[in-house]
Structure formats: C-alpha cells, structure tokens
Design a protein around this nucleic acid. Sequence first.
DNA 1: GATGAATGAGTATTCATTCAT
DNA 2: TATGAATGAATACTCATTCAT
Lengths: 202, 202, 202, 202
Amino acid sequence: MAEEATLTERGVRTRERLIQAAREIFEEMGFLDARVGHITRRAKVAYGTFYTYFDSKEAVFREIADRLFTDMTEPGRLPLRGASPAERVRRANRSYYEAYLRNARMMAIIEQVATFNEEFREMRRRHRATSVGRSAHAIRRWQGEGLVAAGLDAEMAAHALAAMVDHALYLRLVQGDGDDTERFLDTLDALAIRALGLEERT
Amino acid sequence: MAEEATLTERGVRTRERLIQAAREIFEEMGFLDARVGHITRRAKVAYGTFYTYFDSKEAVFREIADRLFTDMTEPGRLPLRGASPAERVRRANRSYYEAYLRNARMMAIIEQVATFNEEFREMRRRHRATSVGRSAHAIRRWQGEGLVAAGLDAEMAAHALAAMVDHALYLRLVQGDGDDTERFLDTLDALAIRALGLEERT
Amino acid sequence: MAEEATLTERGVRTRERLIQAAREIFEEMGFLDARVGHITRRAKVAYGTFYTYFDSKEAVFREIADRLFTDMTEPGRLPLRGASPAERVRRANRSYYEAYLRNARMMAIIEQVATFNEEFREMRRRHRATSVGRSAHAIRRWQGEGLVAAGLDAEMAAHALAAMVDHALYLRLVQGDGDDTERFLDTLDALAIRALGLEERT
Amino acid sequence: MAEEATLTERGVRTRERLIQAAREIFEEMGFLDARVGHITRRAKVAYGTFYTYFDSKEAVFREIADRLFTDMTEPGRLPLRGASPAERVRRANRSYYEAYLRNARMMAIIEQVATFNEEFREMRRRHRATSVGRSAHAIRRWQGEGLVAAGLDAEMAAHALAAMVDHALYLRLVQGDGDDTERFLDTLDALAIRALGLEERT
DNA sequence: GATGAATGAGTATTCATTCAT
DNA sequence: TATGAATGAATACTCATTCAT
C-alpha cells in the first residue's frame, strides 16, 4: 500500500523527485514506452522506491494529470473588467493558449492514455465539462443581451469551439503541424468571435 | 512473407475475411488490446494463416486505415451545383458527418495508434492536408468574391474548422459525450458558416 | 511419401533443379538459415513441389552431402606409378585439395550440420574412415619397407594428418583465414612428408 | 537491461549459478537445443531472473566462451627451463591437451556456434591467432638456431600443426572417435616434432 | 524509508510440413 | 505432377509488481 497519510520530510522530497522524473520521462517517450526503471533512474532512487510512493505506473500518471488539469483550468490572469465580449473571448483564449503551451507535451500523453484508459477519459471529460460550462454560461448571458443569436445552442457551441481550440492546438503544438503560432492563435480568436457573432463592426 | 502477387481466389477470400475480422476486433478492443489470436479466431482460420497474408499486426491495420481514409475523403454525394456558399459548407459537412458516423469506431482506433506510431500519425496528417486543402481553396475563392473577410488566413481557418468538426465528432461519437446528434451537427454547420461570415441574413 | 521409384522425365528434371537450387541456397546461407521457400523460389517451382520429391529439408541435404562425399573420396587423377613416397603424399594431397576447393562452401555447411545432427556426424565419420584407412595402409607399407619409423601408430598418424589437412583447409578456405593458398598447400605437404620421415635428403 | 555495475553479493551468487547452469545445459544439449527455461530450471531461479543478468542466450554463451578461452590459452604449468626443443613441444602440447580435456564438451559447442555466428567465429579466430603466434615465434627462433629447416613458413606451419592438434582432439574427444587417448597424444607429439625436424636422433 | 533482486504471465512471429485442388 | 494455402507448435524476451533485507 503506497502513499501513507504522513510522510517524513525526506519522504516528501523523494516523492516529489519521482513525480518530476515521471513527468519528464512521460513527456520524452510517452506513457506506453515509459518504464518504471526509466523513472527511478531519472529520479536517482532505487527501483523499489517507486512502489513506496505509488501503487502503479497509472498512479503517478494520475497525480501528474491532476496537477496539470488544475493548472489548465486556472482562470486567466488577464483582467476582464470593462472588456467587450470579443475582447473577453480573446483574453480567455489567450490564457488557455498559454497554459496549453506550458503543458503541450503532457497534453499529448494524456490524449494517448485517454485512448485506452476509461479512467483518464473520464477525468478529461470532467475537466472539459467544467470549462465548457463556463463558456456556455457566458454565451447564454450574451444571448440574453441580444449579442449572440438566440437560435444557437449555447452548450453545444461552447463544446464545439472548445474542441476547435483544443484540437487545433494539439495538432499544431504536439504533432508539429505548422509554424507562425501567433498568427494561428489570432485566427482561432477571429473564428470563435465571428462564429458567435461578436465581432465589432466598424 | 505476406507476398502480394498472384493470390488465388481462395486466397483473396481468406485475406478479406482476415481484414474484416481484424477491423471488428480492433473496433471492439482497440489496437493495443487486440491479439492476433483474436483476429484469426474471429476469421475462423489458423493462427499462422494470418502471417500468410500480413507481415504484422501493424500491416493489417495499415490496410484497414488506408481503406478507411479512402472512404472518408471520397467527395460527398450531395450535388453542389447552384447551391449558395453556406449551403455548400453544410452539404460538405454532411458528407463528412456521414462518413464519420460510418467509421467512428475505427477513427478512434486510428487516433489511438497515431498517439504512439509515427507512421500512422503521418498518414493521418497527409489525409487531413488533402481535405483541408480543398476547404482552403474554397475559402480563397469566396474571399476573391468578397464573401469572406480578406483578413482571414484561409489555410489556417480551414485547418481550425476541420479540427473543430473532427474533434467535436470524436468526442461525441467515440467517447459518447452527449446525444441529440442532429442538433449538434446543425450547431457545427452554423458555427462554421458564421465563422466564415457566410450566413444568409434575412 | 516422397521419392517414388519411377519418375517421369519431367519429374527427374524438377528434382534435379531442386537439388541444384538447394545446394546454392545452403552454400549461400547455411543449413540453419535456409528456408524451404528459398529453395523452391530459386528452383522456380511451387512451395509444395519440394515435398513431392523430398520428405524434409534434411532429405535434400542428405542427397547433396552424399554426392559431395562421392566426389571428395574419388581417387586422385594424378598417376602415382613410379613416384617416390614423398611424391605420392604430395599428389594425394593435391587431389584432395582440389576436391576441397571445389566443395569448400558445402564442406562448411556439412560441418555445421554435423555439430547438431548425429546422422551427418556419422556420415562424415564413415567417409573419413575410408580415406584415413587408405592412408594408414600406405603408411604401414612404408613401415614394412623401412621408410617410416616403425614406432609410429599408422592408423593414428593417418588420422592426425588427415585432421591437419582438413581443418587447416577449413579454417583457410571457409573462414577466410589468410591468402597465398599455394604456399600454404606446400607447407601442408612438407609437414606431412617430414612428419612421416619421407623427405628426400639430398 | 542486464547491467553490470554494482551487484550485491546475492546478485553475484545468482549470476554465477546461472552461468554454471548454462554451461551444463549447453554441454548437455548444445546451444541450439538449449532453452532459457532449461537454464533457469537448472539454476533454480525464475524464468525472468535470467534476463536480470543477461541480455540474451548469446550473452551468457559469450561469457562462458570468454572464460573458457582464458583457461585454454593460459600458459602451461610445466616448466620449460633447460628443456630441449622437442621436449618443449611435448610439454606445450600436454598443457593444451589437459586444457582441452577439461573443456572438451564446451569446445564442441563453441565449434557449433562458430558455424553460424560471425561474432564467435571471430572470437575463436583471435584466440587461435594468439597461440599460433606464440608457436610461430618459437619456430622462427629454432630456425635462427639452425634446428628447423629455414625453408618452412613458420607462421603457416604453426597454423597447420595447431589445426592438426585441435581437430584431432575435437574428433576424438568430442565426436568420440577412438580410445587409447594417451597413445594418441604421443602420436600427435611425435608428428609435430618430426614435422619440424626436432626429433632427437640417437 | 530505501534497496535491488526475484518473479512469471503474456505474445508476436517463424516455418517445416500437410493437404485440398 | 504441380500448386500454394492452411496449419499450429514452439520460444525468446519484456516488464509491472512483489518482497526479503
């Protein structure tokens, strides 16, 4: 049984070293090709020490993924006060882009694991639902204000636009499809804003 | 050896049985969990017979994926003559939705394999490039006609919208996220059309 | 059951083609790495045809080895009449060298098979016994004539000298250990002649 | 991984048990027929334990062969001070005979592996070159002292005589061709001494 | 806590041989 | 005779997890 409630200070350090090492290894070779031995070697601990802190390879991965999702769903640092709806979309997107850029490699690995592991599929679904829900809420508000066409299904639209951003970033950042990222992010912003009918006409 | 040349009619039949069985097995349990023994049992042939026709598990998968991509990129059956741009987008999307629905399970497996196999990642990238290219071409034409904002990067927009459609369908059909598919497809259409500024205002 | 008593002319030709092809393949890749498929492809016949004529891979090899041993133990072409004992040794050796050179690659393969197959070990032993017996007979004669020291065990000496010639040729011709073969053969002659005390002192 | 560094005492013991077991198994059934499972069963360890210490079946074999060649090329224990050349040849041969007798079974297996594995062919060639070089050196010295005919190629003669001894022993000890080994060894000594012209005439 | 040795179930692939046409 | 498809037993190697110090 790994992971007792109380850990000595030394234990905490070792555990942290293992998590850091695991993340590096997962990013470098993916979950499937990563071996427990790779992780312990990187962390400079004995093979068996891994199982002092984690029950399985999945267990470290779960912890890493948890932290990552927390980081990804943290609300943006850019202030939204007084911004127009279009600007709000842009800023929200920017916050997400930044988080994605920070975590691109791990996002890819989570994608990998989600293709064969129901638990992580569900974890991803939950996190997605949270942020899609926030977007849907905003869209509904804008619909109330007559800014967005009432006929649009807010939930579905939020879902689809999130899928656009997510997958476009995935293909671009993870699978290395194309350069000029800045211009690409602008395009994503523009598409989302127009799709919702939020563009400022001059 | 799995030599291609000169297969007797019986050989062709057995090979076809194996491909069909492999597709079923892959769809049911994914590439990673599929065993060659599962495939041969399903095809009702001896274990070794698999290797009479294919060099490896990857080899059948490659053939199945090839056929699938051919089916997916087949131009739509809906006639486009005389249709408005918005209508064209809708019809093109519909053709793609139908193909996706036919092949949803296998699309998921290809996604899975693409997360750890460079060859299939590249295969998917190529096919995506083809259809994205087609869309970008149409967008550029519409920009020439003043129908789509000139400031939009046609290539990137096509890429992003394809990502939206692809991933939204993936999450919905493959990972079973939500029902009311018809309404969802309508939402995708609407978002794409508005994002490009092609909606018919009344 | 392969190898019926009566073969049509066509059958004889096919069988011969297979033997020839098998010898080539064995020489090129050794017995262990040779596949029945290699042989039939080389002979330009169908896979199954092999088993029309031979019961197994060992069976063709046996036939090839038989023919080879017949060729190897054929008495030399050089006339021995009126030759001195030393000259006789030299000529006998030459005949053997020539045969060995003709068959070097196959000799190596027979060596290979003899290391794990009792039947071929025995076959080789029998053939060796025949030629060693001939040599021993000559040595005993020369001992009777006072040309070779009586204390020498004729049988063992013949055995040892045959081993010298055989293995030295094997290492040189088969494992490519050194060049200047002519000078090497001269050395073998000289050693054998001196070992028996047959050298002509001037 | 079979890493070399830092083995605990227990590890060293297990590794040694595996090497001993492997040698026994190889001697009993040859390299080709030996299964990793045979070795681990003999060593009374789990299957996987083999791979804790060795990368492959070849790897243990390599280690065993290395040790054996070291043992085989260890200079003889018999003192050579003040001995006549003929006596030196005899004593050197005796040392080799003893080593060969100790290792006869494994020598046969190395012969087997050398017929299909270039690495071991080369390993054998290197060791042979070392000992042939020593003999050639002695022969050249004796030629300088007028004891051996100057016309003889020292290198080639050493090579041929080594081949004689090696192969005669191989056929006798390994393939069980004949008894009265003591008399046979005497014959080998006599032939080598006479071939070089080193016999003491009375 | 830390260590690293021990475990053994799991699997793709090969290939000689058989056999239906 | 000739063909080539079908068969399935055989085996080295991997690696997550357990466990004795």
